[in-house]
């Protein structure tokens, strides 16, 4: 009788264990080629959801259904916004915003470099010390700094700037200073990379030489506090690429022969080996996974990472200047004047 009790108790403990700590089986994911579209055609107003692309000396949009596309040749540079674009020549000093009906909506006289992040239009001055934001052709703020800007990132509400003097600064929606900090702790102070999460809760910073450090800052009581730091093994003397996917849970950092992943919740990091350099990383909501695009000249890899950073899927392919973006369940690859949609399926 006591044996029976022990057996039942053991079974109960085992059942309880699996209830409390369920085993996670890796998804058996695969890419299914859905559709491809040749990137040709003149400017048109694409009716469905669209994806912007810049490929070599061309730019344009294609629909996520892959049934419509248009392409233009880039003059000297291009800015792609949700409601139009600027295809500018460096010699003119005039930036013409054209809507998708081909109409000139406004012109901005500014000889700086225009670019967009999160559908916000910014212009950085030629000496790299001033930044302005424009809405509907009007300058809504401008800031001039005494130091060269080394990196810029933004979300819908804030802008983060890294400077050559070792400071980084977070600006509000109206360009006012919200937070300024110098990470320090290195022989030389320079900001080599700065990113802000979409929700504004986290800042990822690469700073200094000897050692070069990554620091994570978390917004607590209206102030950013450092919550995690690590020294990087390979030091870069240029701007370091970082990506915070839209779920605001991790940051991926360019490394030598791979990339780091830092988890915001556990405040821990992992180095993932890769033959190529980090280019892009996106969160794919439909499968709760991350798409990571790495590449070198003519070589590319797209891998799908689980939340625990296990590689669920990895595909190598050839192609130079390839652009990889994502939807909730799909990966879009722009290559050789075509766009390819791959659906992620189990």
């Amino acid at each position: 009788m006591p044996d029976k009790k022990i057996i039942i108790l053991s079974i109960l403990i085992v059942v309880l264990f699996f209830l409390l700590f369920p085993l996670k089986f890796s998804s058996n994911l695969s890419f299914r080629a859905k559709k491809a579209i040749k990137l040709t055609g003149n400017l048109k107003n694409i009716s469905n959801d669209k994806i912007p692309f810049i490929y070599k000396n061309k730019a344009g949009f294609f629909s996520i259904e892959m049934d419509e596309a248009w392409v233009m040749k880039i003059n000297d540079g291009v800015v792609l916004l949700n409601n139009g674009f600027i295809n500018y020549s460096r010699s003119s000093g005039q930036l013409d915003f054209i809507n998708f009906n081909g109409e000139l909506e406004y012109s901005i006289i500014n000889n700086g470099y225009p670019f967009s992040i999160e559908d916000r239009l910014f212009i950085i001055s030629r000496d790299r010390k001033s930044l302005s934001e424009y809405v509907n052709g009007d300058q809504i703020w401008t800031r001039t700094f005494n130091y060269i800007i080394t990196d810029i990132d933004a979300n819908k509400q804030s802008v983060i700037l890294g400077f050559m003097n070792g400071y980084f600064e977070v600006l509000t929606r109206s360009g006012d200073s919200f937070y300024v900090y110098e990470p320090g702790g290195s022989r030389l102070s320079i900001i080599y990379g700065c990113n802000i999460s979409d929700d504004g809760k986290y800042l990822a910073i690469i700073s200094g030489l000897s050692p070069q450090r990554f620091s994570l800052y978390e917004l607590k009581n209206y102030e950013y506090k450092p919550v995690f730091a690590m020294n990087l093994e390979k030091e870069f003397r240029k701007t370091v690429k970082m990506k915070i996917p839209s779920d605001n849970k991790i940051v991926l950092i360019e490394g030598d022969e791979g990339f780091y992943v830092v988890d915001f919740d556990s405040k821990s990091s992992k180095f993932i080996k890769s033959d190529y350099k980090l280019i892009n990383a996106r969160y794919m909501k439909g499968h709760d996974v991350y798409m990571v695009h790495t590449g070198a000249v003519n070589f590319n890899n797209v891998r799908i990472l689980a939340r625990d950073f296990k590689t669920l899927l990895s595909k190598d392919f050839f192609g130079d200047d390839v652009q990889v973006s994502t939807g909730d369940d799909s990966v879009f690859i722009v290559i050789d004047d075509s766009a390819l949609r791959l659906d992620l399926t189990e």
């Binding site: 810049i54 470099y113 670019f115 992040i117 950085i124 080599y192 003397r237 240029k238």
Partner: peptide
């Protein structure tokens, strides 16, 4: 520090 490409956002 060096930068031989100007890459911010879609720039």
């Amino acid at each position: 520090y060096y930068q031989d490409e100007l890459i911010f956002g879609d720039l």
